[in-house]
């Protein structure tokens, strides 16, 4: 029989650096999970993403066991990296801090595809371009679908 799921916890933690301090400790500990076991597993599984913020979805079962899925890094991080800027804009509509190309947007979209509700890379690209706009990062040139 499948184990009964009692809840989910969504965290974003730097790869290879999970430790029992907050929010990992209180979020998992309060549900009776063995935090140390989670940290050991998470750090081993994300060792190649050392220092990069990694989203993780933890499924908690009634017997206090857990599973987790590591998601792709936030689009915002990848945009900051691609645009080679330090951070986003305070006034994204008026003040632009940097730009990326549609090729870069496509690269990010392809990495993010598994986690986005998008079936086509074009839809994923539109989502990534939207995040870029919210951060004051422009996408230079014409979108591929504009011909």
């Amino acid at each position: 029989m499948a184990k009964e799921i009692t809840g989910y916890v969504k965290l974003q933690v730097k790869g290879g650096q999970a430790n029992p301090s907050p929010p990992v400790g209180p979020a998992l500990g309060s549900k009776g999970l063995n935090i140390m076991e989670f940290c050991k597993q998470f750090n081993a599984r994300t060792q190649e993403k050392m220092g990069q913020v990694v989203p993780v979805l933890i499924t908690i079962y009634s017997d206090k066991s857990f599973d987790f899925v590591v998601k792709t890094p936030p689009a915002a991080n990848m945009l900051i990296e691609a645009a080679k800027v330090k951070n986003g804009s305070a006034e994204p509509n008026r003040k632009k801090v940097g730009s990326v190309t549609w090729d870069q947007v496509k690269e990010i979209a392809e990495v993010k595809m598994p986690d986005l509700n998008a079936f086509k890379v074009e839809s994923a690209m539109k989502m990534i371009a939207g995040t870029a706009r919210s951060m004051g990062i422009t996408v230079s040139g014409k979108a591929p679908w504009e011909g």
């Binding site: 974003q12 913020v53 915002a76 900051i80």
Partner: peptide, 12 residues
């Protein structure tokens, strides 16, 4: 839509 942006910026 700003959740991920804030996470990225605060991580910095």
């Amino acid at each position: 839509e700003y959740r991920e942006i804030l996470i990225s910026e605060l991580a910095e």
